[in-house]
Design a protein around this nucleic acid. Structure first.
Length: 557
DNA sequence: TTAGGGTTAG
């Protein structure tokens, strides 16, 4: 109807595509426009078959409101209202001869921000048709558009074909890779950029620091990025600093994050949010609460991000009174409809022992989603109400069309653990793969190991640890060792303790639990050996496990 | 006319 991509006898086939006659999903599911461009760009003909005013009308119908034609299109695009921006774009072009590269760029920018795939494709098509294909600004905007629409392969094609690149095009692609969960590729691309003529700017550093956040192997790179930031004077840029704070916090280096935060005197809300979230992630709840108070004293309004992090901190500290105060503030600030905040509230109330509070939040939330449902199942599971958790889970599966993910299954298996339902737990664990196509990750395996171990099925727990494609982690082995102690399993306990000591040689718990296991079985020589080993290695008592019971057993023997 | 920071469940 409006723009037809029409290629005659292309590789012997007649290919006809009418973008406007297709729905967005049709276009997404059809062969990409790229196929035409790549095979024979010059043979592809794009015809504008109708006036842009018809586009205007079509979009107007979709947008459920008339575009405000008196507002400049550029300003509208900045306000992230594609329909209005496009409305102005179309209106302008129904009276002009053709859209300029500036207009195309602005509309493409708006398409990227609002993920308007259909229109963005047409702008790309028009770029080819109108000879703007190699324009640096438009190509950069196109890279950004494809990346924001999760079409990173298309973004890469645009980027690779660019003859000239600048800081923006490099940064757009690096950030695009990062946002498309290809963070390692983003870091590689940054290294490639360093070898080019184009030098990174603060935008690039924000992108690459964000990409390296949470990647353990990128810690060294993170340190050198921090050095670069200082060297080039970006260490006062709040965007750069907040990304660095987040990075250090995710690496567990909360001290580095605090040093960075303290160096900034003009702190905006996002900097506070980064630091509060950093404290919260590193279980420094008191630091988070202190900073939250400081933020309030400076009359900075908390955002949904602030509430989510501070509620998380309240939950970790199990401070119900402060949690309720934050809840009041959430209502006052109008954040009670945010799904992140509500999930955090459910979590906070359950961790503070008030699972009825969690139920109230859950019931009052109108628009529930998978995250919220999982939060409530987790709240029940962690509060020892395993049967309620399973009841809710089954209800959601049958009544709400709920599709559980890995995290939900962790909650469900935890619930089975609390309810002592071994068979049910095995059934859900198997259903993960057979019904939902989810391969259990280390967390669900840990739940099942725990379930087996608590029910005295230590050999099955051991088999699972050996067969699963992950190394058993510390929590899993600790739980297994505790069960070995309860059920008096000497050989399995000895092996688990050995693995735990290898993972963390400074922790006294595995030694002491092993001593308890030996004492229960009357293996006094082995008890003495463990005691000697602890002394030789200078291991201090931190865990809370003591020798009192072991000594009592030795004495009574 | 193009690019950037902070949030949830185990």
């Amino acid at each position: 109807m409006v723009i037809i991509i029409y290629a005659k006898k292309l590789f012997g086939a007649i290919i006809y595509r009418n973008l406007y006659s297709c729905s967005t999903s049709d276009i997404c599911n059809s062969s990409p426009v790229w196929e035409f461009f790549n095979k024979s760009p010059r043979r592809v003909k794009l015809h504008i078959c109708d006036s842009y005013s018809k586009v205007h009308l079509a979009l107007e119908q979709e947008s459920q409101g008339r575009p405000r034609e008196n507002v400049p299109y550029r300003k509208q695009a900045k306000h992230e209202n594609t329909y209005e921006a496009v409305g102005s774009f179309c209106h302008k072009n129904s009276i002009c001869t053709k859209p300029t590269k500036f207009i195309l760029c602005t509309v493409l920018n708006s398409c990227a921000k609002t993920v308007n795939w259909q229109l963005g494709l047409q702008i790309h098509a028009y770029m080819v048709q109108s000879g703007h294909e190699e324009n640096l600004f438009l190509s950069s905007a196109l890279v950004d558009f494809y990346a924001k629409c999760d079409a990173i392969m298309d973004a890469r094609k645009v980027f690779d074909e660019m003859k000239v690149r600048d800081q923006v095009s490099w940064t757009s692609f690096i950030v695009g890779l990062s946002q498309n969960r290809q963070r390692r590729d983003a870091l590689s691309m940054f290294k490639e950029m360093l070898g080019s003529q184009i030098k990174p700017n603060c935008f690039t550093y924000v992108g690459v620091i964000t990409a390296s956040a949470g990647l353990k192997e990128a810690f060294e790179l993170g340190l050198s990025l921090h050095s670069h930031v200082i060297k080039f004077g970006f260490n006062t840029n709040s965007f750069v600093v907040s990304s660095l704070i987040d990075c250090y916090a995710k690496w567990g280096s909360i001290g580095h994050a605090v040093l960075l935060f303290d160096e900034i005197h003009e702190r905006d809300v996002i900097l506070y949010n980064s630091m509060i979230s950093g404290y919260s992630q590193n279980l420094c709840g008191k630091g988070a609460l202190k900073l939250f108070m400081e933020m309030r004293n400076k009359n900075l309004s908390p955002t949904d991000y602030t509430f989510t992090s501070i509620l998380n901190a309240c939950g970790s500290l199990t401070v119900l009174f402060q949690g309720r105060q934050v809840h009041s503030l959430v209502i006052k600030m109008g954040s009670e409809r945010n799904v992140f905040v509500n999930s955090a509230l459910i979590d906070m109330y359950s961790k503070c022992g008030d699972v009825n509070g969690s139920c109230c939040i859950f019931d009052q939330t109108c628009e529930k989603n998978n995250v919220l449902w999982t939060s409530m199942i987790t709240a029940y599971a962690q509060s020892g109400r395993g049967s309620d958790a399973l009841k809710l889970f089954e209800h959601l599966l049958t009544e709400e069309g709920f599709v559980p993910d890995h995290i939900c299954f962790t909650a469900v298996l935890t619930a089975c653990n609390h309810a002592g339902l071994l068979d049910k737990g095995i059934e859900y664990f198997n259903k993960m793969r057979t019904t939902y196509g989810l391969f259990p990750d280390v967390d669900q395996c840990a739940c099942l190991v725990d379930l087996f171990a608590r029910n005295g099925e230590l050999r099955k727990a051991k088999d699972l640890m050996e067969k699963m494609p992950y190394d058993p982690n510390y929590v899993m082995l600790s739980s297994f060792l505790s069960s070995c102690n309860i059920h008096g399993e000497v050989e399995l306990g000895r092996e688990a303790a050995k693995q735990l000591i290898q993972l963390n040689p400074c922790n006294d718990a595995p030694y002491l639990i092993l001593a308890h296991i030996y004492a229960r079985s009357g293996l006094w020589t082995e008890v003495a050996e463990v005691r000697k080993l602890i002394q030789q290695r200078g291991i201090r008592n931190h865990s809370g496990w003591s020798w009192v019971e072991v000594d009592r057993a030795v004495m009574s023997s």
